[in-house]
């Protein structure tokens, strides 16, 4: 069995306590929520923290409530609970679908929303044992200085594969960040940057505590759809994760819309749909959106050996996400 190198553990029960630990440890700690990403990574020697701060006992992180104009979900709510919660199913069904598509049933009962949003990036050459990485030659994301995906590359291009981010980005979500100075809200896109070796803007002293998703405007019909490309129908990380949100006026005209293609690189890719606003959502428009997305996406060999196929699949899965969206509410 793979073993983890020893580390000290802390079990805070409040957010303040957790933040204090992070302050004290100054970058030498890792947060652990469900641990479904962290533990395999520790076993692979990808992180070598001095301490692990377990935040699974903090009650304030497992709230899920409705406000006048938004849904607010605590970072510690499990993906399983999100996928089955009546409020989520009512207001943000796309998020329920995305959460339900993560990993497999056991992992969704452990894995949390916060952990999913803060998931480490993935790469065929990185998510491997120490032995394997040593045999291949360590890469610049961990222990080495070269990139095996982009020959001669100086920047890591490992991919985010957080399925809930795909959907939340379409829904203009914001996240609450806590540190010693207290909470603050940032738009979700600001959480990510394009460096695969370090794709979160979060500091080691900060915790993501809450996600807020604004409700749709009253005068539009909101369509949310999600589609995911993977080899097996369960367990597998996405090779593509596509989310779409379309707000329709008079049930056919696009008032506003958002499209995210994820699992390509370090930062989820937003496809700008502004040119389609005001148009009627018909087959031609759907095909145009799919073609545009395909043109904009350039898969690499970071998480799958065959980027050409993945590129071809972009338009297929954009269409499927839109079909799912339309099927959901029509």
């Amino acid at each position: 069995m793979l073993r983890m190198q020893p580390f000290e553990t802390h079990y805070p029960t409040t957010i303040d306590e957790a933040v204090t630990h992070l302050e004290n440890l100054q970058g030498k700690a890792k947060l652990c929520a469900g641990g479904t990403d962290l533990i395999p990574n520790l076993k692979h020697g990808l992180h070598e923290p001095q301490a692990v701060v377990h935040i699974g006992r903090i009650k304030d992180l497992v709230t899920l409530e409705e406000t006048a104009d938004a849904i607010e979900i605590g970072a510690g709510v499990t993906l399983h609970n999100i996928a089955h919660h009546p409020l989520v199913l009512k207001y943000v069904p796309g998020l329920a679908t995305a959460a339900d598509a993560v990993a497999g049933p056991q992992l969704r009962r452990m894995g949390t929303l916060g952990g999913n949003l803060c998931l480490d990036t993935r790469c065929l050459y990185y998510n491997q044992t120490y032995f394997w990485r040593e045999a291949l030659g360590f890469c610049l994301k961990k222990d080495g200085s070269v990139c095996h995906v982009v020959q001669g590359g100086k920047k890591c291009v490992a991919a985010t594969s957080n399925d809930t981010a795909t959907m939340l980005l379409c829904l203009d979500a914001e996240v609450e960040i806590n540190d010693a100075s207290g909470p603050r809200w940032i738009p979700l896109p600001d959480l990510y940057k394009s460096d695969g070796a370090d794709n979160l803007t979060l500091l080691p002293t900060e915790i993501l505590t809450k996600v807020r998703i604004p409700k749709a405007k009253k005068n539009v019909a909101r369509k949310e759809g999600f589609a995911k490309l993977r080899h097996r129908k369960s367990i597998d990380y996405p090779m593509l994760s596509v989310g779409v949100r379309i707000d329709l006026k008079d049930d056919k005209t696009i008032e506003s819309a958002a499209l995210i293609v994820n699992a390509l690189a370090a930062k989820p890719r937003a496809i700008k749909l502004a040119p389609f606003f005001g148009k009627i959502l018909d087959d031609e428009v759907i095909n145009d959106i799919a073609a545009l997305a395909q043109k904009r996406c350039r898969p690499l060999t970071n998480i799958c050996d065959d980027p050409d196929w993945r590129k071809e699949m972009v338009s297929v899965f954009v269409k499927r996400a839109i079909a799912n969206a339309c099927g959901t509410h029509r």
């Binding site: 065929l124 998510n127 491997q128 044992t129 291949l136 097996r232 129908k233 369960s234 597998d236």
Partner: peptide
């Protein structure tokens, strides 16, 4: 990857799940 087995793990070597 000269002679390297791609992903010697049960994540990368994909045995079918119940759903498959």
């Amino acid at each position: 990857r000269h002679g390297m087995l791609v992903g010697p793990s049960l994540l990368d070597y994909r045995i079918p799940t119940t759903l498959d």
